[in-house]
Amino acid sequence: MTEQPVPQTFDELLDTSGLNCPLPLLKTKQALNKLSGGQLLKVIATDAGSWRDIQVFVNNSVHDLVAADDTNDVYSYWIRKGI
């Protein structure tokens, strides 16, 4: 399921494959803290709980979930850091 067209470029890649909840969300927060406002973070996860967790986190933050994709139990997110 893709919410938006998937961006082909991004500023930072975070691969949390193999990590279980809550680590994908925690590492996503840490990676966003290192970026400048407006930069795009791509997150890859294999934990099904990340589908809910990351979307709820972004909805309650200044960040923007540009796109999300769930293909073959690999979850990908493109998050633009808020300013």
Rank of each mutant, 00 (worst) to 15 (best):
S36G: 14
K29M: 15
K34N: 12
Y75D: 05
T46S: 14
N60R: 05
F57R: 10
S61I: 01
T2S: 12
P5K: 07
N59G: 15
L25Q: 12
F57C: 03
S50Q: 04
K34T: 15
G18T: 09
D73C: 00
Q39S: 09
N20L: 15
R52G: 13
P24T: 02
D53W: 02
S17M: 14
D73P: 04
A48G: 10
L26S: 07
Y77G: 04
F10E: 06
S50T: 10
E3L: 15
I44S: 09
R80L: 04
D73R: 06
S76N: 08
N60M: 07
Q55Y: 08
T16P: 09
L23N: 13
I44E: 08
I79C: 00
L13M: 03
K29S: 09
P24E: 08
T28W: 00
T16I: 07
L65E: 10
V56A: 07
A48D: 11
D53P: 07
L32D: 09
N60C: 07
G18K: 11
L32W: 09
N20K: 15
L32P: 12
F57Y: 14
H63L: 01
V58H: 05
P5C: 07
E12R: 14
P22S: 01
E12T: 10
G37N: 08
Q55W: 10
A31D: 11
N33S: 15
V66M: 10
D53I: 07
A31M: 03
Q8W: 09
P22L: 11
T16R: 10
L19E: 10
W51V: 06
G49T: 05
L25E: 03
I44V: 13
L35F: 00
Q4M: 02
L35W: 03
E3K: 14
T9F: 13
I83T: 11
W78L: 11
I79F: 11
E12F: 12
S17T: 14
L26R: 13
K27P: 02
A45D: 07
D15S: 00
G18N: 04
E3I: 13
G82D: 06
P22V: 07
K34P: 02
V58D: 11
I44L: 13
P22N: 08
D69I: 00
T9M: 01
C21F: 15
D47P: 08
D15L: 08
V58P: 03
P22G: 04
N60L: 14
Q30N: 06
V43G: 09
D15G: 05
K81Q: 00
T2I: 02
C21E: 10
K81W: 06
D15W: 12
K27W: 11
P7T: 10
L19Q: 13
D73G: 09
F10I: 00
